[in-house]
């Protein structure tokens, strides 16, 4: 075995006998505090409830917008209606004279 192969083999075996690294006491303290955090931060209601409320609000807003648009369209039609009736009446009168 040449020098290079020996070096590669030795390097490949460099992790033999590796010991676990000791974790930092500060990390352990943080992990302990993490253990209590999820309970404090727990959602007040189950997640589906939040989604249902959000969907309800979205539906309400959509219905309001649609109602507003519909009202505006009808309002415009009402403004235009007298003029249309007058034109139709005058046309009728003109025809009647004849």
């Amino acid at each position: 075995m040449n020098r290079k192969e020996t070096w590669i083999n030795e390097t490949m075996n460099a992790l033999d006998g590796i010991r676990p690294a000791a974790s930092d006491p500060e990390l352990v303290r943080k992990l302990y505090s993490t253990a209590s955090e999820p309970h404090e931060n727990k959602d007040l209601f189950p997640r589906p409830v939040y989604w249902s409320v959000a969907a309800g609000i979205a539906l309400l807003v959509t219905l309001n917008v649609l109602t507003a648009l519909h009202f505006n369209r009808n309002h415009t039609n009402l403004k235009e209606a007298p003029a249309a009736v007058a034109t139709e009446y005058l046309t009728y009168l003109g025809t009647a004279k004849l």
Partner: peptide
């Protein structure tokens, strides 16, 4: 059930392995 003591024991049992795997 969210027993904090049980969580602490879990941390004690697994934190070294978790840390070493991540490292």
């Amino acid at each position: 059930e969210g027993d904090e003591l049980a969580f602490r024991q879990l941390v004690d049992q697994h934190q070294n392995r978790v840390f070493n795997t991540a490292l």
